[in-house]
């Protein structure tokens, strides 16, 4: 819990390390692998995710032009569904970009594991298929460096750690 803050530089170094040192593992591009505290991994497809509680909001982002409507499963709801036990969740993108986030920062419907942008699934080329987003326009607290770093796209794996 104390080690939750990551500076940008650290994050970059970490990413390089991942790219060069770790072998690129076979990944299911269209599934979201969630590993709970016990080491069990569940892969969520669109169908499974759609079955979970849904939420949506419209906001602008620094990566897109204009306002965008995101819809999907709140991260909290997703973690609750696997009855995750732990304090921190490690999130990893397709290109092995990884960030960790303490559970404390989870709100009821923020951040959102977006499955759709403007009502449509997102392709890998279009930062899909899953994108962790905050309602940036709602509050300046969502427009901080940390939150932008946490806004991980091409989300591929979630790992609950202590």
């Amino acid at each position: 819990m104390a080690r939750t803050h990551h500076s940008r530089r650290l994050a970059v170094l970490f990413c390089f390390f991942l790219v060069w040192v770790l072998p690129v593992m076979a990944q299911d591009a269209l599934g979201l692998q969630v590993t709970d505290g016990n080491g069990d991994t569940i892969t969520f497809g669109f169908d499974q995710l759609d079955a979970l509680p849904q939420s949506e909001f419209t906001t602008s982002t620094i990566w897109t032009d204009g306002k965008v409507r995101f819809s999907g499963v709140p991260l909290k709801a997703l973690l609750d569904s696997v009855e995750a036990q732990g304090n921190t969740v490690k999130m990893i993108a397709l290109n092995d970009y990884a960030v960790t986030m303490p559970f404390d920062e989870l709100e009821e419907d923020v951040p959102l594991v977006a499955t759709r942008m403007n009502g449509e699934h997102m392709s890998v080329r279009d930062k899909g298929p899953f994108w962790l987003v905050y309602p940036y326009d709602r509050n300046w607290r969502y427009r901080t460096e940390t939150k932008y770093a946490l806004s991980i796209w091409q989300l591929n794996r979630l790992k609950v750690v202590d």
Binding site: R8, V12, I62, W63, W140, R143, T144, E145, Y148, A149
Partner: peptide, 14 residues
């Protein structure tokens, strides 16, 4: 707020 809003840096990094 301006300092904590890291839009510019994150974009550079991207």
């Amino acid at each position: 707020r301006n300092l904590s809003l890291a839009a510019g840096d994150n974009t550079q990094w991207s």
